[in-house]
Each structure stands twice: as structure tokens, then as C-alpha cells.
Design a binder for these strands. Structure first.
Lengths: 213, 213
DNA sequence: AGCTTTACACCTAGGTGATAAGCT
DNA sequence: AGCTTATCACCTAGGTGTAAAGCT
């Protein structure tokens, strides 16, 4: 996943389908990213593989990204696929734009959180209750400032200068992602009236997600 | 005010400053437009004035424009100036984009509404209670499909092809607008916990609003 | 050498006034 | 003649990969 100083959107975009919410209740949707290990990596061109290159850099400021439509009713969230296409990643530790800060050459696990908003207790909105978190192992990725594989070219989406999407290139690290999963509420910790069921959506007609892309 | 078939944004934009709201309560902000009279007008070039040209056309479908940030907390609305810059006007009676439909060559009065959202009574959200309406006479305007005065040129804002703002041209009809007013809650009808105080903001460094622009 | 940063040409999306053509 | 409509060139804002330059 590309990170830049100014911040760049995730690609592929993290998308989920929600069900089981209370249609009339308010929910806040958000994401964060946690380090997968305490290591720093480097890419060996000759062997086309990632190698451990020492211990992790100091952890970046932990930030969260609220889905900009938050808060919204459960009915609204379940109406259609929820797309986190506004989320931006940066490697700038001093970032002042509210973007997610990641260390380049480190591995991360995106997390998705559904927070039930109880209107009767306004001050405890984001307390450590009434929410549920979801982690999809197949969305783990390596943060990089540039693609390490010249076969990878993402000529797509608004702003793409090229003509056609390529998305070629085999998986670039050693964790071939499993197919998309369906995490039910029962599978994960969570309290309170948030019976969320979340399905991550595969990123369209592309090959399996590229871990370093 | 320009109306087109596809819909065009108002200019100048309707802007208000809110105070007196409950910071923790939810409010929906919206606008609508009511005919000022039952007449149709035409513009006499030689005398540079508007003349009555018969009775009004059949009234267009009455629509409202919700401020896209709705619903939001009172604190959020009062935080800064609220701008209805997404509102679009059309003369297409069959419009399917949810734009405000107006008859060209007719006069209109914009109205601004503050709706208090009571979370305890979800089904009656937009009932005819708990809201307050504001009308600023100085925002009355004539709907036209093209500026009737060649001295008027709005070279400004995103998408403007020209180089500099002109905004020349004297008032184009017979209702020179008074300076901006401050309508307090006491001046207008309204029920329930919506102690809104609304101040319309003048449209920046321009001369007084052009009634037909 | 390996990784990061910057600059840049290019793209999409949405919006604008002017103009010319069309309608009544 | 008076008004409407469609088209157009042009603009801003935001986003993208590439390539060159910079850093360590």
C-alpha cells in the first residue's frame, strides 16, 4: 500500500457490506491500522521477496478514520456497500491533515469498527462499550512509498494518467490472501445493542489483493 | 437568479449564521422558495424595467432543499457560517435530480427553516412542530434563464472562465434590497425547543444583491 | 543500493459565462 | 422580439503514476 508525505488514498479501497444493524439507530463507522509485528522489512529484488531488516521504527501516532457519513442510521449504512475511499495514508509523522500515519516498510492490519451511538448518553459516545471490531486477515499489507515491483501499475480511477488498467503482477509477499470472509457478530468480541454482521467485499475484477501494493 | 434545465447553483449563495441552538441537539436545515405574487413578468429593454406580463404560469412542484450536512448538532451548525452552495435551481418541471423547480420570469422569496429533531419521536421527525422559519425580504429575486442586462457578468467562483470578477450592473428591478437583517426567534412563529436566532449574511464585497441576477 | 521526496503531466468531475441556434 | 436551450471552451479542485532528484 502506497504511503506518501501528503497522504494518498488506499488502493484497493476497503469496502464492507453491513447487515443486522438496527435500522433506526445511529452508528459511527471507523477504521484504524495496527502493526502486524515489531519488524521492519526490506525488499530483495534478486529474490523478489521481503526480508526482515531489523526491529520496527518507533510507532507512529495512532489515529482513526471516521467514515465521513458518520453518524448515520443503520438503515443508511445497510442500504449499500460502505466504501472507505476517502481514507488517506501518510508516512509523515507530523501530519496535520488527520490522515492515518503509517511507517513505510512495515506491515499492517486494517481494522473496521462499528460504534453504536446511544442518544441517551451523549457524553459516552465513544466509550469502550457498544461497539464491535472486525479484522480481515486478507487485508494485511506492507506500507511502501513506491511499488517494489515494476510489473505493478495501477492505471485506474480518477486522476489516472494512463489509458487502461493493468493490475498485473503476482502477489508480492509471502501471505497470499484467502478469499473474502464473512465475520458474524458471534465471532468477535462486542457488547451492547450492536448486532452487526459484516462482510468484506473483494476489490472487484482484480486478481487477489497485492500485499505490497 | 439563473435557472437552467439541468439545474444551476444559486448566486449569490444563501448564507446564514445561527445562534441560540441547543449545542447537543440535532437540527435539520432546509430551504424552499415561494412565489411572491401571481404574476409573470417580462423585461423592457428600452426602459430597463420589469413589466407585468400576465398571470403566473401553473405553479411548479413545491420542493425543499435539505442542507446536505443535515442532520447535525446545534454546535456544528453554529460553529461557522452555513452556506447553501449546493442548492440548485431549475426550470425543468420534470426535473428528476431533486433540484428546486422555479418558473422563469417569476418572482420568488427564499425561505430558511430550522427543524429541531427530537430523538424520542422518530416517526414525527418532520412534523409541523419544533421548527422555525425565516424569510429575508432582501433575498427576493426574479428567476431568469439568462441575465437581462448585458452589464451583468458573474466572472467568479469555481468554473468561471474569465479572469476577474466584475459584478457590475446596477440593481435590475424595482426592489432595491435593504441591508441584511437580524431576525430573532421572537419575530417569527415557531414552537418547541428551537430557540434559533438567525442572521443572514450579505454576499461579500459585492454591491447590493441583484434582484434578477 | 535502497528508499524517499518532489515535481509534473495527465486525468476526472463539476461548475461557469458566452455564444449561437431554436422556439413561439 | 423575446425568451429558451444546447453546446462550448475554460476554470478549479482533487487525484494519479512516472520519473528524476535527493537522502543515507
Amino acid at each position: 500500500m502506497i504511503v506518501t508525505k501528503a497522504g494518498r488514498r488506499m488502493f484497493p479501497t476497503f469496502q464492507v457490506k453491513l447487515s443486522g444493524l438496527d435500522p433506526l439507530a445511529d452508528y459511527v463507522l471507523l477504521m484504524d491500522f495496527i502493526p502486524l509485528d515489531d519488524k521492519r522489512y526490506r525488499y530483495a529484488f534478486h529474490s523478489s521477496s521481503w526480508l526482515v531488516a531489523g526491529r520496527a521504527d518507533p510507532v507512529a501516532p495512532g489515529r482513526v478514520h471516521f467514515h465521513p457519513d458518520s453518524p448515520a442510521k443503520g438503515a443508511q449504512w445497510m442500504r449499500q456497500i460502505v466504501s472507505f475511499d476517502k481514507l488517506k495514508l501518510t508516512n509523515n509523522l507530523l501530519d496535520d491533515n488527520g490522515h492515518i500515519i503509517l511507517n513505510s516498510m512495515h506491515r499492517y492490519q486494517p481494522r473496521f469498527h462499528v460504534v453504536f451511538v446511544d442518544p441517551r448518553r451523549d457524553s459516552e459516545r465513544f466509550a469502550h462499550e457498544n461497539f464491535k471490531s472486525f479484522s480481515f486477515p486478507e487485508t494485511q499489507f506492507m506500507a511502501v512509498t513506491a511499488y517494489q515491483n515494476h510489473r505493478v501499475s495501477l492505471t485506474e480511477g480518477p486522476g489516472a494518467p494512463g489509458q487502461q488498467a493493468t493490475h498485473s503482477g503476482a502477489p508480492l509477499d509471502s501471505t497470499p490472501p484467502p478469499p473474502s470472509a464473512d465475520h458474524a457478530a458471534e465471532d468477535l468480541p462486542g457488547i451492547g445493542p450492536c448486532p452487526a454482521r459484516v462482510t468484506r467485499l473483494p476489490p472487484g475484477p482484480c486478481p487477489p489483493p497485492l500485499s505490497s501494493a
